[in-house]
């Protein structure tokens, strides 16, 4: 996939960091944005459940997970801003980058859907996240390793919770099974993007900072297949490969999400909140 080098920084106040500038210039910045954006976007999607969940306990649980992910995002984007050294803090990165500067995988940006869709997406991500963070805690970058250690504790709880719901709803009623299988079929191809490594990942691995993504695929599949079996859900046979998020190519959904999320800081330039 090729990237246009022009038109990336159309909004006023955005530093000159086009889609490819980070890759060439500062792979660590790029890497941290990828990690931070996954969490920011997923946290945002989860936060849309507050007050609308099927049971009160899930209002609380999903808000709590949203809080964990936004917290992780804030720490990662803060570090990204420091690494970049151009005076951008976590809010500048969250609120003043355009859609094509976001580096999250497309899996996390899809609209929240029904509770089943949210749970399947969450489980597929959480199962990856535990494996990923378990490696990232050994990063030679001390601050990053620290963020990962805190996040890993949260992720272990997340995966237990979402995994239990996958089993409960997969092996619940006919309707719940149908909904869960439908969500799984829709989401499956989006998981491919989680394991695609590029030059940024290679550089981060060489420097002992990042994680070998390809090596996570097999253990992830074992865990996920085991849970899906308990949930009586069939592993989809979907050959489609989704990619592009890491380079700023997204689905149509992210723009709408960011328009809502960024409205206040964009409408009131320079204001403090």
């Amino acid at each position: 996939m090729t990237e246009s080098k022009s038109g990336a920084s159309r909004a006023a106040g955005v530093a000159a960091a086009g889609p490819t500038a980070g890759i060439a210039g500062n792979p660590l910045f790029e890497y941290l944005c990828r990690l931070g954006d996954d969490r920011l976007v997923l946290g945002h999607r989860l936060s849309q459940w507050a007050g609308h969940a099927p049971i009160l306990e899930e209002d609380i649980a999903l808000s709590n997970f949203a809080l964990d992910f936004v917290g992780q995002a804030a720490a990662l984007l803060k570090l990204a801003g420091e690494v970049e050294g151009q005076g951008r803090d976590e809010d500048a990165l969250a609120y003043h980058r355009d859609e094509n500067e976001f580096r999250n995988v497309q899996l996390v940006e899809l609209p929240r859907g029904d509770f089943g869709f949210t749970i399947v997406r969450q489980y597929l991500f959480d199962a990856f996240d535990v494996l990923f963070l378990d490696r990232l805690v050994k990063s030679r970058h001390e601050v990053l390793a620290g963020i990962a250690a805190k996040a890993l504790k949260e992720a272990r709880y997340h995966v237990r919770h979402s995994g239990e719901w996958v089993v409960r709803l997969g092996d619940g009623t006919e309707e719940s099974h149908r909904r869960m299988q439908g969500a799984l079929d829709e989401l499956w191809s989006y998981t491919t993007e989680l394991f695609v490594a590029d030059a940024v990942d290679a550089t981060m691995m060489e420097q002992g900072i990042g994680v070998d993504l390809a090596s996570l695929k097999a253990p992830w599949e074992i865990t996920v297949r085991e849970t899906l079996a308990r949930a009586t859900l069939a592993v989809p046979n979907d050959q489609r490969v989704v990619r592009g998020g890491r380079l700023g190519r997204h689905s149509e959904h992210l723009g709408h999400m960011l328009a809502e999320m960024q409205i206040l800081p964009r409408s009131h330039p320079g204001a403090q909140w």
């Binding site: 920011l40 945002h44 936060s47 849309q48 507050a50 007050g51 009160l56 306990e57 209002d59 609380i60 808000s63 709590n64 949203a66 809080l67 936004v70 917290g71 995002a73 804030a74 984007l77 976590e90 809010d91 969250a94 609120y95 809502e260 999320m261 409205i263 206040l264 800081p265 204001a271 909140w273």
Partner: peptide, 25 residues
């Protein structure tokens, strides 16, 4: 929650709404 103007404000508001659910429970 989805329009909170900073990440800190977003977290504080999320935590508040979560607390309210907890109080209700």
């Amino acid at each position: 929650i989805t329009r909170a103007p900073s990440l800190r404000r977003k977290m504080v508001l999320l935590a508040k709404v979560q607390d309210e659910g907890g109080h209700g429970l």
